[in-house]
Write a protein that binds this DNA or RNA. Structure first.
Lengths: 219, 219, 219, 219
DNA sequence: GATGAATGAGGGTTCATTCAT
DNA sequence: TATGAATGAACCCTCATTCAT
């Protein structure tokens, strides 16, 4: 297949095939990354498109080639950052059955997918700006929270002793499992410079607490 | 009734003494109340001074007689709304010693002082806008969080069995106690219209969980 | 009535009563006048609000205190310039009955009310921009053309010999009477610098022509 | 068929000779046609090059291969649309000598060359935008109006009775002959949707009027 | 003090024009 | 030659802040 889009051997492909699309996608990503930086630092309203452009290394007008307006940029940012999580949520681990194992997985996932990534900032943005962006709040609810909570609920149901009242409380309010994670995210942004919070320690303590209650033999 | 709002005797002063100050204070309060409404609904940047003025029933310029600028208004809003809490935190209940009793008091206090009042919105504002307002974040940390957590910590120390590992976790991370309360506040604003959250039920379940762990006889 | 809003005799009225409203109206008028200058010179799209403001001697933002946006400014300009004409059209002269007298009045009115005033430019603006401003075209049709033509028609009916075919043509197409006036307006703007047009001579010749036809004894 | 679009002999040239030029000319025409549509619908300033390109079926950049800039496109549009008229004006009919015949020819020409074609829109564009485009106004004056009026004048001189005052008026102000035609063009664009104007009827009535005056035996 | 008209800097968005492919 | 992504100057409009009344 000489001359076809092989890549690798052929002579002098000055521009590799698909260069256009790739560059376009790279630019889009650069803009989204810059937007995340700026939005996270200043919030939606106080962020200037100009700054996003400068940080992304493009001209102001270029942003409007990729996003209809500032709000669309924001929405796309949230969407693109959180969509991979949706995929993860679709396939909950099948086997885990002990509370300890389950919580461990959840915490690991949180750290790996959120706390250790820029997504942390996206979540904070959603919490902060969501109320003014119905589309964002709805997306976040429909695609993330509305899927994560039932999934956690289902895993819990399998993991906890029937009749264990702490387990039943968690099944009813899976938010209780996530709450400290949110607090960690918020704390860092608000008070990090006054008093850093050891998020891992917090989550570990949280798990200990939950396990203390879940593993307890009911009186 | 000496000292009460009358004056009563003098001929000319249609306005009784202190009427000026009272009216002035009332105006200031009206502006702060209006500002809370508007900031809570639209966030700091998207709130227009004009709207605050209209809602407060004063002219736009009047706001600048009471507050240096928009940011000062915001800071004052947070300050004045949260200061009463500071007072509460100064005098922690002395006698409570059982975990159940302590948690009950904390939850009650939360509901009475925050969740059942406009302060809920102030807290949300602080979480949302705090990162962009160092003064606000610092005030909130110094006056509220930085006092509340040690106070709770101290109460816990008194209430939990020594050696109870859940208790020790809580003493180290008192944030774990507050986390669900924050989640309730945030949830309502973000997802209330999709899926209302029973905050009381959440807090109750949270307490049950904590108590399950705290009251457990360590193995 | 001492101290009341007399005006005239009383001492030291630093600011005459109604100063506010008068100043406001004067400002509005100044803006409209400046807008006419700029719109007439550059057309709607090419006119910058900034230039209107500068010419009116106000700040850019001030214009938006008086007019919702650029388009509203344009519409108001047309409306306010042409409304007085509407009043004139409401009261057509009652007595004139000869064709010559009627045409004389019409031409005089045209010169006095339009050609000798800035309204000439307003009319040109309507002709130029009207197709893109349905509101303007409609206003002009409803309030001006739609009233002027029937009025002229009625006057003609009274003035021309029954059975005079030229008269009947004019009654059916009163536009024929106005056409040269429009041409004069347009010519001046387009070709004035190449070849000035003697509008009065044109209108006079036009009248002679019409009278030649109207006064003709039918064969 | 020498010189026609074949070439026929050579091996490689898939494109017959002149195909390039022809395609190029076709493209230029397509752009001009699209530009007329867009300019006529939106005016010069409000027309986007992008829209012209899309309507012409070419890329935006292509337009700049054929026209220096937007203004040149506009000027070329006017020029190319009106040039054929110039040719017509160069060769006025030689024989017609009666007023009725002359007017008939003029009206026919107007309908055939202008009112029944897209040139109607070009004329409207010139009237609307001309004042802002000295080049356009000058071209229109120099090539069209400045030739048409003298030509009409000359024809009139031959057609009217010497001493006929209406005829002399027309000779002095040939604009009077064209005025209703302009009104028809303008009326349609401005008020067509409120009250359609029977242009033919208007022109017919106009001719009747003129003839009524021209054929009159002077007293 | 209180008002609200006036200001003008600032930012989102558009679009004519360019240029690498 | 043709393309269309990229550019950035330009411009409308908003709104925090001021100040004459």
């Amino acid at each position: 297949m000489p001359g076809s889009r092989s890549g690798g051997s052929a002579a002098k492909p000055r521009k590799p095939p698909r260069a256009r699309e790739e560059k376009s996608a790279a630019r889009r990503d650069a803009i989204l990354a810059a937007a995340l930086d700026e939005f996270a630092a200043s919030g939606f309203a106080a962020t200037r498109i100009d700054d996003v452009a400068r940080r992304a290394g493009v001209a102001k007008g270029t942003i409007y080639l990729y996003f209809r307006d500032k709000e669309a940029l924001f929405q796309e940012l949230v969407r693109s950052a959180l969509s991979p999580i949706v995929a993860v949520l679709e396939h909950p681990p099948a086997g885990e059955v002990t509370p300890r194992g389950l919580l461990g997985v959840l915490v690991q996932t949180f750290v790996r997918e959120i706390y250790g990534t820029r997504r942390k900032d996206v979540i904070r943005l959603v919490l902060s700006e969501g109320p003014r962006f119905p589309g964002v709040a709805e997306f976040y609810y429909r695609e993330v929270v509305g899927r994560a909570l039932p999934a956690v609920r289902e895993l819990l149901r399998r993991a906890v002793e029937p009749g264990n009242s702490a387990g039943e409380a968690l099944v009813r309010y899976p938010q209780l499992i996530v709450a400290p994670a949110l607090v960690a995210v918020i704390w860092e942004a608000l008070f990090g410079r006054f008093e850093p919070l050891d998020a891992e320690g917090l989550m570990h303590a949280h798990c200990e607490l939950l396990l203390g209650a879940l593993e307890r033999r009911e009186p």
